[in-house]
Design a protein around this nucleic acid. Structure first.
Lengths: 142, 142
DNA sequence: ATAAATTGCTACCTTTTTGTAGTAATTAAT
DNA sequence: ATTAATTACTACAAAAAGGTAGCAATTTAT
């Protein structure tokens, strides 16, 4: 259950942008709010825009906006974009030859747990996070 | 859902040792069977013995044996020993201030999914893997 | 005793991930 | 036009993870 630090940064940024009701976010603001290293964050934001989650605008009063409606971006998509789409589809025991017809001893139990996790991550969108925050069900955790 | 390569190696080794009914395993055999880099594997085995999963015997006809009954070693213990005990207890969105009373927008959903995974990993022991293999329910995946 | 087969240890190397610095390009305000 | 505020890009540095090599220590077989 471990995401790379970069993936966590991406989730922090997008969740922050989703919950605060602001149209445009400058890298500098996100850096100060989220304490993510400035230059590293800049690169990450460029990457997230290349991956189609956000759109960048240069120049004075520029920054980043969501590229599409928040309700169409789910958590699994973000993780997949950063970790690789089948980062979660590997054999738990590390056997490369492990497949359905030739399963390792953890295969079925693991497939079941994993699909529950994927279901949770897939059904939760940034729109859902935004709504929970607006309704004061959760905090911003800063 | 990503373990480090080292953790995967550890799970491969211990699962292999659990399923083949052999008392002692030399590093060289494990290297050849599992294709884990020889010297890296040697270090890992020494580490696993320091962590109390296996016992090493030096000298001719030496090797590694389980330190305790396989039914007392579960998958979660192995992962914890290699990744750190609370590697799985971090906030999914990467917020360090995320705690029960001050939860992020994913907190509850994530806690639920995660506890299911942990339950699965905790209830499955190396003894269980051994049994499934003996009964031909699963393969060795090599 | 000697040789062979094993683990333990240390030092180093390579690759990947994370972080930093500075400059160029772009846009808006004045 | 000039300046200020922003993103884009490139190159580098530091830290962590993964991998290699060789020798020392230990045990068993002969």
């Amino acid at each position: 259950m471990i995401l790379s630090r970069t993936t966590e940064y991406a989730l922090s940024v997008l969740a922050f942008m989703a919950t605060r009701n602001q149209k445009m976010y400058a890298a500098e603001l996100l850096h100060q709010e989220l304490k993510i290293p400035r230059q590293y964050l800049r690169r990450l934001l460029t990457d997230l825009s290349k991956k189609g989650f956000i759109i960048s605008t240069r120049g004075r009063s520029g920054g980043f906006v969501f590229a599409r409606d928040m309700s169409t971006i789910n958590i699994a998509q973000i993780i997949d974009a950063l970790e690789g789409a089948d980062a979660m589809n590997t054999c738990l025991l590390g056997f490369t030859a492990c497949i359905a017809g030739h399963p390792c001893a953890m295969h079925d139990l693991w497939a079941e747990s994993r699909s529950k996790v994927i279901e949770t991550l897939t059904k939760t969108t940034l729109g859902d996070l935004s709504e929970k925050y607006r309704k004061d069900i959760v905090t911003g955790c800063l």
